[in-house]
Every structure is written in structure tokens, then in C-alpha cells.
Design a protein around this nucleic acid. Structure first.
Lengths: 343, 343
DNA sequence: CTGAAAGCGCTTACAG
DNA sequence: CTGAAAGCGCTTACAG
């Protein structure tokens, strides 16, 4: 039982001989079965089973010009990947959605300039058929370069328009503004009156849209929505803690905080605890994402669920459509309020 | 500035014509430059720059039989990927170590039987040159199958020998036992006398070795090391909380807990807080991993650092050596005690 | 050190 | 519906 010798794998030629047909017929069978008689198809099927034939993707790609693979490209600084659980959920979802089409996912990281160059060279050389682009910040140099090459790209999150260049980028995103509105409405409906917010970075769609949703609802409700109620974080836990401490300083009588991500909300809880405020009794905290961080400690977070499963499957669907020649499209997915303990 | 038309990319033929040499010479230049005169090399270099030539990997692979790509294969149930930050660190490290060799990493998940079949078919078809295998549990059906095919495989973590089949699996691991010993010695040296442990699953190397290290040091120190001081978790946060509550029930006067992972240690801290024990004053808590979970809350964890950067780079090094025809090897890397607040 | 040639395994018009 | 043939872009003995 050595198993160590790897003999030459069967080729289409072996299958053709075994099935008593030509190689062209085998190939046609493999590529949809058009113009193959039922009898020939049966013979080929049996021959494939007997020989254990598996297509040589390199030979196929050489002639079709397609690679039948897709890149999952991360352009955030690397630490993000580890602090933000959303990346993981997206990565798993995309891997599995692609696997269903038998398309492997190539993970690429372009955090440094050297990595960026390498990735651009690789992608523009046609080594992948398309790119799933994950970066929340605008003005991404890789994104802009890729757009110029004509290679199919789908971004996660709505790209911020910068001189009109990223406007035609296909993307899939949750409805940030509607989600923020729903959370703030929830806070208002439970009697909160001084509702501050820890917003995300102003160069990210989440940073802009969730803040806008917060403001809209407060204005509609006739509640204060001034800038003293706004502090910014960078989606990290620590930044949520700092921003919340700042808010407590400025507005000691706040009775709720809408935090633009669950991870930052974890930091907000720490700041509130340190300040002796009980959650939710003294201060209600609403998060965003419904990431693992939402339930990684106590109290469990009331939050807005982003439909990550659907986001990843839609990204894959849109990318495959682009590769198939369709026009770029934008998909906006609804969010959902999840009420737990913190608000 | 349309950029959308993707013209036929330059081939080796274009480069040869441009450089005034034959295609064979260009190819030799590309593959190490042996038997290429300095003058010819210069001409080819210039021609490559002018034409923007990038090798067509499919054509190359078709003839070399290598794919110049590697799979990162996750055989844990998928949730693990998201709860355990170590996977992420490993994934990033491997991606970047491979990128330095211009080898793309294919992410594959084999959690369900259907996914397992797909992955095995893909890998054994020769679509990757080797596999980085990440699974902490023994008796992994994919691992056993892969071993039989002769494809190069490197595992992360020491595989538990099961009927001698996985013994010859190349692997890279931290020194679990030595790390556990160091942590328990630290607890003893700071005056702790009733030191319980939350161990990992007994079918994982970490579950076995860290428990053994705990016991060895206590026996050497003449301290209690009975089974009532041992509870098991599954590396998840919740399991650490449950196991610690169980320990507090059985041994109310314990003054330290060595927890076999940081994530479980976070759960342990929650259980201790709920029981009204202060950390580290009443009970010291030592973790393992030095993962992001170690500093994701308060108190920050005293823990054992696994050298993830080196683990990933060694995994890649060993895999490339295997692909190059060398024999399987095992690498054991030292750990390091990191003292923070919890012990 | 160099070129001409064979061939890797597949797909796709083309002619029947 | 089917087969024979060309050709995708590259590497590698081979002969010089």
C-alpha cells in the first residue's frame, strides 16, 4: 500500500479510446453535451468512471483563455483581517459559494505597496477571471487600477464616488442607512432622548451612511442631533472605547449610544463600565453588524444584522455574471434589528 | 480612457521577436537564465519590459505538470474558522509567505462530506502542488486520504498517531508541553497552590500535551494534580466558561486556573466574575496562544505565545521542500511566556 | 550558448 | 451527430 507513486493521470485521449469515440466527442460531452448522441454520452460517462478521468484545467485554460478561478482580494491593512470578524464571514461565504461552481478562491492580500504591485501584476496577467474586492475605504489604489484594466470586479460595500472613477464599480452592500435608522428608531421608541453615536471613519460608506441614518431619525423625532453627540472611531475595539469616553466627557447625561460596529460597541461597553454606567439601565447601547463580537461578552449586544450569507453569495453571483459578459450591477440588501440585552 | 478592451497579451513569441532571439532562449532566460549569454539576457530583459510580457501560467503548467499553487485546507467545522483567531493568523502568514515565492494560496474548506469529496477530487487531480492542512483533530478523513495519494502535505500541529498512518505526516507545531510547563511554573512561582486546568479536547494535540505539561509541573512541585482539578472544553469561549464553573463547584478554594486557550480563558474570566472571584487577586488565570482574545477585554491575559509567524513561514518552507522532493520533516517551535494582568 | 522542433492536454471551427 | 486537424503558449531535450 505505498500509494506514493503518482502515475500519469488519464487524459481525454484515454477516455476516448476507452469509450470508442473521438477526443472531440469526449470534449463536447465535457462541455455541456451538445451534439453528443445519448449512446455516445453513455459510453463516455462509463469511460470517465472507469479511468477516473479529471479534466486538466491548465490545458483547458490555455485554450479557453479563462482561468476558472477567482481572487478574493483584501486591500485593508492586514490587522483588519483579524480584528474584524466580518471579513471571515465574507471569506467563508465566498469560498463556499464559489466551490459550488467548482471555482477555487485565491486569497490575496495587498496591504503594502510591494504586495499591491504583485497583486496587480498577477491579476492583470489574466491569472484569475475576476476579483472579489474587500476594502471599506475609498480611494483604494488597487481598486482604481483594476477598474482601468477591464477585469471583472465586485466590491463588498458601496464604493464612495471619487471623481466618478469608482462609480461604475459593481458592488454588493447592506443597506447601511436603513439599518442605522431602524436602530435609532428602536432607541427612541424605548424612551431614550439623548442619543449619541460612535460613527465609523468618514471615508468609509458605513461611516457616512450610518451616521446619516442616525441624524435623520433624531431630526425627524425632534431630538438633539448636534455634532457634540458624534465621535468617530476606526472600527476597532479600542477606538470605540476612546470615542465613548469622549462622548461621556462632552455629554454626561447621554442615555443611549448608537455604535457603528459591534466591535466598537464592545469598547463602548468597557468605557461605560469604567464610568460606572450600567447598560442598558443607565445607557442603552446599539451596535451594528451582528458579528461574533455581539455575543462574545456580557451584556449581549442589541444590533443590526448584516446579511453576510447573502452578501457573499450575491457577490459571487454578480461576479460570475460579469465574467459571463453582463453589465455591472449594484445590489443593496436589507438589514434586520436583533434585540438582545444592551438596548 | 476606456481601458476596457483586453487585447491579446504578449507571448514569449513577441518577446523573442522583439529581442531578436529564439523562443527557446527567452524561455531559458525565464527559467533561471542558464545557457543564456549576457548579451541575449539583456536583449530579452529589455524586450520583456517593452512588451509588458507576463508568463502564461497555464501553458507553463501544462508542460511542467506543476500548478505553482498551493491549497490551504481547513477541515474543521466552519464555525471554528471564526471563533478561533489562530486560524486567521495562520492564514495570513501562509498567504504572505507563499506570495514571496509568487505562489497563490487556494483557500479550501472541507467541513461537510460533500465538501470533502470535492476537495479530494480537486487536490488529487493535481490542481495544486501541495496542501497546507489545518485541523486540530485527529483521525481527519481528508488527511488520511491525502496521505495515500502521495501529494505533499504539511499539517499545522502535531498529528496524533492513529494506527501509524499519520505518523509520517510532515508538520509544524509549537511546543505545547513546554509552553504549558512554563505557565504552570509561573503560577507556582507566584505562590499559587491549588492550580486547576481547563484542558482542550483529548483528541487534539493541544488537549493532550498541555494537560500533560500541567500535571508534570504540579507533581514535580508536590502540589495536587488530581482529576478533580481537570475540566475539558472544546476551545470555544462558552466551553471555557462552563468548564470553569464546574471547577469552582468541585474545588471552591482553587487559586489558579491554567486554561488551554485564550478564548476559553475569556470564558473562564466570565465564570470567575460571575462567582465573585477577582482576577488575579483571588484566582490567577493563565491562557495559551497569545491570540487577539488575550487583549480583547479586561483583565488582559497572561498567556503563552505561540509563534504563529514562524509556524506559518515554516509550514510554507517545509511544504516547498516536500514539493522539491525532500523528505517529510517535523518542526517544533518554542513558545514564550507573556505576563500581563491575569496572573 | 543557441535555434528548430516536438509535445504537454485540451477546445473548437470545419467538413462531412 | 461525429472525427480529423489546428492551435492555445510554453518547456525541454536535441543537435549544432
Amino acid at each position: 500500500m505505498s500509494g506514493g507513486e503518482r502515475r500519469r493521470p488519464p487524459t481525454i485521449h484515454d477516455v476516448a479510446r476507452e469509450a470508442g469515440v473521438s477526443r472531440g466527442t469526449v470534449s463536447r460531452f465535457l462541455n455541456g453535451g451538445h451534439n453528443v448522441s445519448p449512446a455516445a454520452a453513455d459510453a463516455v460517462r462509463a469511460a470517465i468512471r472507469r479511468t477516473g478521468y479529471v479534466v486538466n484545467r491548465h490545458a483547458r485554460s490555455l485554450i479557453t483563455g479563462r482561468s476558472d478561478s477567482v481572487a478574493f482580494l483584501l486591500t485593508e491593512p492586514q490587522e483588519k483581517l483579524f480584528e474584524d470578524p466580518n471579513f471571515n464571514v465574507l471569506l467563508r461565504g465566498c469560498t463556499q459559494a464559489l466551490a459550488a461552481h467548482d471555482i477555487p478562491l485565491l486569497l490575496m492580500i495587498a496591504g503594502t505597496p510591494a504586495e499591491r504591485r504583485r497583486v496587480i501584476r498577477y491579476v492583470t496577467a489574466g491569472h484569475v477571471d475576476g476579483v472579489l474586492l474587500v476594502s471599506s475605504h475609498t480611494g483604494d489604489p488597487v481598486a482604481e487600477h483594476l477598474l482601468g484594466t477591464g477585469i471583472p470586479v465586485v466590491a463588498s460595500g458601496k464604493p464612495i464616488d471619487r471623481q466618478g472613477r469608482t462609480a461604475r464599480l459593481a458592488h454588493v452592500a447592506a443597506d447601511d442607512r436603513a439599518g442605522a435608522r431602524e436602530m435609532v428608531r428602536h432607541l427612541v421608541s424605548t424612551g431614550r432622548r439623548t442619543i449619541a453615536t460612535v460613527a465609523g471613519p468618514p471615508d468609509t460608506p458605513g461611516g457616512v451612511e450610518r451616521l446619516a441614518g442616525w441624524r435623520e431619525v433624531l431630526v425627524e423625532a425632534g431630538l438633539p442631533a448636534g455634532d457634540e453627540l458624534v465621535a468617530h472611531g476606526d472600527y476597532s475595539r479600542g477606538s470605540g472605547e476612546r470615542a465613548t469616553a469622549e462622548l461621556l466627557d462632552r455629554v454626561p447625561d447621554l442615555d443611549a449610544v448608537f455604535v457603528a460596529s459591534d466591535l466598537m460597541a464592545r469598547g463602548a461597553l468597557a468605557a461605560l463600565e469604567r464610568a460606572g454606567r450600567r447598560v442598558p439601565r443607565d445607557v442603552a447601547v446599539g451596535g451594528f453588524d451582528d458579528s461574533p463580537a455581539a455575543v462574545s461578552g456580557l451584556p449581549e449586544l442589541t444590533t443590526i444584522r448584516q446579511p453576510w450569507d447573502r452578501i457573499s453569495s450575491e457577490m459571487v453571483r454578480v461576479l460570475l455574471a460579469l465574467i459571463g459578459g453582463e453589465e455591472p450591477s449594484a445590489v443593496v440588501l436589507p438589514t434586520e434589528l436583533v434585540v438582545r440585552e444592551s438596548a
